[in-house]
């Protein structure tokens, strides 16, 4: 069982749209304020990565249920350049954009499960899940 909705990331404004969608979904699933902030922030980071590195892509928010467990999955997909050195990207403090470099490992810490599928020249799909406790 799942309900999903998505936002295309093309302009900077779409980052705002994506995180608003995420926050509403998180609220409806029943997440507390701290988890809402975690989910919203994770979406913002992922959407910004798409905007900065791939140019365009898509954020999909999916509500999931596994037995008694409920949760939210964020899927960030793009057909951008891919990530050549995934291990480096997952290191704290690594950045190519001049930001704070909190991006990927930070998002991983905010969520419960975190998975990256990437291929150079083909694109990147990041799946991040948060379970309601």
């Amino acid at each position: 069982m799942s309900i999903e909705s998505s936002v295309d990331i093309i302009t900077e404004w779409d980052i705002v749209a994506a995180r608003q969608l995420g926050r509403n979904e998180a609220k409806e699933v029943g997440f507390g304020t701290v988890d809402q902030a975690r989910i919203t922030t994770a979406i913002s980071e992922l959407a910004r990565n798409i905007y900065l590195y791939a140019g365009k892509g898509k954020i999909t928010i999916e509500r999931i249920a596994d037995g008694a467990m409920k949760g939210i999955v964020i899927i960030a997909a793009d057909q951008g350049p891919g990530i050549p050195d995934l291990r480096k990207v997952m290191e704290d403090g690594y950045t190519t954009s001049g930001g704070l470099g909190a991006g990927m490992p930070g998002v991983k810490r905010l969520m419960d499960d975190f998975k990256v599928d990437t291929e150079v020249g083909v694109g990147t799909t990041i799946t991040a899940t948060k379970w309601l406790r």
């Binding site: 304020t33 701290v34 809402q36 902030a37 975690r38 922030t41 980071e45 704290d92 403090g93 704070l100 909190a102 490992p105 930070g106 998002v107 810490r109 905010l110």
Partner: peptide, 14 residues
């Protein structure tokens, strides 16, 4: 700064 915001910032590593 709200508690939720502080926690998220710290977890992000900021």
């Amino acid at each position: 700064i709200q508690p939720a915001v502080a926690i998220t910032l710290i977890e992000l590593g900021i």
